[in-house]
């Protein structure tokens, strides 16, 4: 009986694992097949990988999308980490009067649904279009700015700063470092793992972000990867092999980070919010 139950558990977990992995296997296999084979349900690797890549990079704006997504994700990650960690550190280290009340108010912003602020944000950026160069609708800056400051990362860094030995701050002051000097030369180097976990999440959120870029980026030369995939997928006569190739390329960075730094990745994910 016990043994039977054991076998049942293994069968159940194997099916669950197969269901979880299957779409990945399918997209990797389909990347090497031509469109017709993909629709006919071919599950064996083919020899069309090179053709699919050629179409994707020659006749679709894949290079532009990759460049845009990379620029946006890198700048977003840098600014998110900088602003988030400065604030998390500031809230934890200093006895600024009223800081906890401010902190709680900032946390409330995590409950704000993006759909509710999307229209005013769009109108705000529309308002500066034409007056401030590189900041209006359909600019990379507009795609980046509203996403870099989130209460989640302030919370994340404040939580992790609780583990930071505060004696080091005093030691830094005695050594004559400025307050910012302590932050950059003492705090930052000792908190590398926290920064790594935060960087993974910030990069992934930005790399995969869809709704805001969809709203604010309109011209083809500003397209990001999720926008490109969505457009390819919505076409009337989609080339499945090419779309699957684009999806694999889009998934590659996050999948690689996951397999290389699984622990940081999972830690970061657990601290991050859905949606």
């Amino acid at each position: 009986m016990r043994k039977l139950k054991r076998i049942g558990v293994y069968i159940f977990l194997s099916i669950a694992s197969l269901v979880s992995i299957f779409p990945f296997l399918w997209m990797i296999v389909s990347m090497t097949n031509k469109s017709v084979d993909v629709t006919q349900g071919r599950l064996l690797p083919g020899s069309y990988l090179f053709e699919n890549l050629t179409v994707l990079f020659d006749s679709v704006n894949m290079v532009t999308a990759l460049v845009n997504s990379t620029i946006i994700a890198l700048i977003t990650t840098f600014l998110t980490l900088l602003i988030g960690s400065l604030a998390g550190y500031g809230f934890e280290i200093y006895r600024t009067p009223g800081k906890d009340r401010i902190f709680n108010i900032l946390l409330l912003s995590m409950m704000i649904p993006f759909a509710a602020i999307m229209i005013p944000l769009y109108r705000m950026f529309g308002g500066v279009s034409g007056t401030i160069p590189f900041l209006g609708i359909d600019t990379l800056a507009a795609a980046i700015l509203p996403t870099v400051i989130t209460a989640f990362f302030i919370f994340f860094f404040r939580q992790n700063t609780k583990m930071f030995a505060k004696e080091l701050v005093e030691a830094g002051r005695i050594d004559g470092l400025s307050e910012l000097g302590i932050f950059f030369r003492v705090y930052l180097p000792t908190m590398k793992t926290t920064y790594a976990a935060a960087a993974i999440i910030a990069f992934m959120n930005s790399w995969n972000n869809y709704l805001w870029p969809l709203v604010v980026l309109q011209s083809p030369e500003n397209q990001t990867i999720p926008l490109l995939i969505s457009n390819l997928g919505a076409g009337y006569s989609p080339d499945y092999g090419v779309i699957m190739t684009a999806i694999v390329i889009a998934t590659l960075p996050t999948a690689l980070v996951f397999f290389i730094m699984q622990r940081h990745f999972v830690e970061g994910m657990m601290g991050s919010m859905k949606g």
Binding site: I83, Y89, Y94, R95, T96, P120, P146, E179
Partner: peptide, 30 residues
């Protein structure tokens, strides 16, 4: 040092105000 504490959180407070709470208010008016 208190003043420095404010500087550390300033960008975050301004950013969240500008990109979350202000749009929320605008959406309410809208």
């Amino acid at each position: 040092k208190n003043y420095m504490g404010w500087l550390f959180i300033l960008l975050a407070v301004v950013g969240i105000g500008l990109f979350y709470f202000y749009p929320m208010l605008r959406a309410l008016l809208l």
